[in-house]
Design a protein around this nucleic acid. Structure first.
Lengths: 190, 190
DNA sequence: GGGAAAAAATAACCTAGGTTAAGAAATTGG
DNA sequence: CCAATTTCTTAACCTAGGTTATTTTTTCCC
């Protein structure tokens, strides 16, 4: 199990003793996903929060016309879940799919709750993670309200430099909120 | 000082002893705002998280063309801050303005940190608050990507029933992401 | 209560981005 | 390495929503 990355991820915000590290690592369930395999589908309850160690995940919804809308990408060192479903433990609306062969470390809702009680520092850790995610979600909202597709694409390039070259363009188009056809038109006009 | 509301707000997620309640309440600074008075302006550091007990706040940005974009409304029982600035203690981009005569209870960043150490339950409380805010921000993002203005307006009516009748229409238009002119056109077509 | 300011409505015209369709290029997995 | 699938591009046409300008209505506050 590839654990360096997740320990360094946590060390950015809280300090753990070796015992605490061992206790935490014992809770993680590793999982390997093939390209296009789903970690979660619409209507399921999201029972795990997953940390990506290799590959890449994306979360998206399918609206009533069958259009996909990408909510987030998770390259290595990112956490991913259907947050609504994970916190409420009710059926969610997101699909979470591997974009390529991907490895994750999964922490169940129950184990996370246990962790909060046993090692309160983890409550701080996840609070900080969610605070940052919230700020970035709000910024993206404002960007969608006030910037052109061109400008949102520039933002995307800065936020996910590693993904710009590796991801299919249609996925990037969906994330910034335009059709692949318009994205293509836009890329000619530079 | 009007403290019932904030104590009930907290009691939704954590249980406090009378001593803890008293300790918490002693940290809050009440403030009264006139209509159109600012609680925070662009470029300032957001030093407080504010709980609304009366009236209503809104947060918005001004883009380079001078257009306002409403990020959030806070009627009574809601918390409001420029989250980016509050967590980083760097200058932010939001304006926070009173829509009408408004009363808030303000908790400083330093006091919040102290509270986390002294009464770890508060770390849980604010984690839960931010989790919910994050989920709702993500849902709004998806709504902006996949719904029409008409549908977003219906969502707004469900989310903030008390504001639909009291707020100027141009503010609602800005929140759902359309111009007041288009909003007006849209309201005729029902 | 009344004058100033803000908000709302209307309408003519404009544009960023969507739709449909069809062919070309790139990936992928057997 | 090759057939199937997916992705990308192009182009003609379309539409949700924006812009500008003017008038009407409402709200505020002295």
């Amino acid at each position: 199990m590839q654990t360096d990355l997740v320990l360094r991820n946590i060390a950015k915000h809280i300090q753990l003793t070796p015992d605490e590290q061992a206790y935490f690592l014992a809770l993680l369930k590793p999982k390997t996903l093939k390209r296009k395999e789903f970690l979660l589908e619409e209507g399921e309850v999201c029972r795990y929060s997953s940390f990506v160690t290799k590959g890449c995940l994306r979360s998206y919804t399918l609206n009533k016309n069958g259009d996909e809308h990408v909510l987030a990408f998770a390259p290595p060192d990112w956490w991913m879940a259907d947050m609504y479903s994970f916190i409420s433990q009710k059926p969610g609306t997101l699909f979470i799919e591997a974009m390529e062969p991907t490895e994750v470390l999964m922490l169940s809702k129950a184990d996370q709750q246990q962790l909060y009680s046993d090692i309160p520092k983890f409550e701080r850790f996840f609070r900080i993670i969610v605070e940052n995610a919230f700020v970035s979600s709000q910024q993206r909202l404002l960007d969608n309200l006030s910037l052109t597709a061109q400008e949102r694409f520039r933002n995307f390039c800065q936020k996910y430099p590693s993904l710009v070259t590796t991801l299919p363009r249609k996925q990037i188009a969906s994330y910034i909120g335009v059709t692949p056809e318009f994205f293509s038109k836009m890329m000619k006009t530079v």
